[in-house]
Amino acid sequence: MDDQTWARAPIEPQSVNAPLSSAAVFLVVTIERAAAAALVVREVISDIGGLVRTVGFRDLGGRLSCNVGIGAEAWSRFDQAAKPEQLDRFHAIPGPVHTAVSTPGDLLFHIRAERADLCFELERLILDKLGDAVTVVDEVQGFRYFDARDLLGFVDGTENPTGQSMAEASLIGDEDPEFAGGSYVVVQKYLHDLAAWGGLTTEQQESIIGRSKIDNVEREDDEPASAPRKSHRSLNTIVDENGVEQAILRDNMPFGRPGHGEFGTYFIGYARKVWVIDHMLRRMFIGDPVGEYDRILDFSKAVTGSSYFVPSIQTLEALAPEE
């Protein structure tokens, strides 16, 4: 059986590969320690599709969806005989100047729609069902900013795979057959210093990002010996031992509260191979070569970091407690 067997199997992934949306909610919660809390959580997330249909039926054109991610510690509390091979907590990555922090999170709800009110209503129902079984540790409302730009002014997600490559990069295959159709996801919340970023020239910003700001064209200035450090684009280009470029699926969203001086990007990366995201982050925070970290981190601070397994719909539904 080859690596594409998952595509022929009767397995339905969650909406990992859904199109980019206009609005999103990123909700991270922890599960209370009582055994009963884990049972409540299993009952709710195993029927997440029912809640999505309840809200989404009000506007089928709103394309409401919700991916549920389960953290390593939470999975260990769900009385499952097997564990996804690559599931682990997010480990902090301390660099010479900046750190990719690790923060609590047992469950991730990635809610997407073309209407913010659909996201709001689904989040409300989810939290109502979960009740005091969970504690919210992070909640971000994201929005699509002009032509898919981040608040730094650059187009975000250009290197996302498309077509069949999207599924190949994001969905588990025969390498872990019991969890085929699932995915791994890493999330980080970055806060931007827009005043400091705005103090740079456009050319300086483009050198840091590795693309032109207006027309989103890749710069080719990383290679010459005179180039000042690798760009964000270059550091996030990962190749394996065979020289094959590896991809992940991003669905980053800007967020902000101007009245509080809060401006940021919520990074969310789905991957079939967790090591690809880990390698990206190590290159960003530690540097390549070591010490020459991603200069974007001088203006964007990571304030959260957690990772999850996103099971197939069949695996998620099978988490329902036995009656």
Rank of each mutant, 00 (worst) to 15 (best):
E323N: 06
N252S: 11
L127Y: 05
A24N: 08
Q164V: 14
F267P: 01
F57N: 08
T5H: 04
D215P: 01
L60H: 09
W6E: 12
P258G: 10
V41A: 06
F78E: 14
T237H: 13
G261V: 00
G49E: 06
V187P: 00
E114V: 03
S170L: 11
V185S: 02
K189H: 01
R112I: 12
R219T: 07
Q4F: 13
L39P: 00
V28R: 09
I248N: 02
E292I: 02
A247W: 03
Q314R: 14
A82H: 11
P10D: 08
D117V: 14
S170Y: 09
G62P: 08
D138M: 03
I277E: 06
F299T: 01
F309L: 05
S22I: 00
V28N: 05
L130P: 09
Y293N: 06
V185T: 03
P177L: 11
W197G: 06
F90V: 00
R33D: 15
S306K: 02
T237N: 10
G287P: 07
R8T: 15
R282T: 13
S165H: 15
P177M: 05
G305L: 04
V29H: 07
A180W: 04
R77F: 03
P177T: 03
G210D: 09
M284I: 08
L249K: 10
T54G: 12
S306W: 04
C119A: 07
P311W: 02
S212D: 04
P224A: 06
E175Y: 09
H232R: 10
V185Y: 00
T158V: 10
R219P: 01
E292N: 11
N160V: 10
A196G: 08
L200D: 05
G56N: 05
D2Y: 12
H192Q: 11
E85W: 08
I286V: 15
R124Y: 07
T265G: 03
D106L: 11
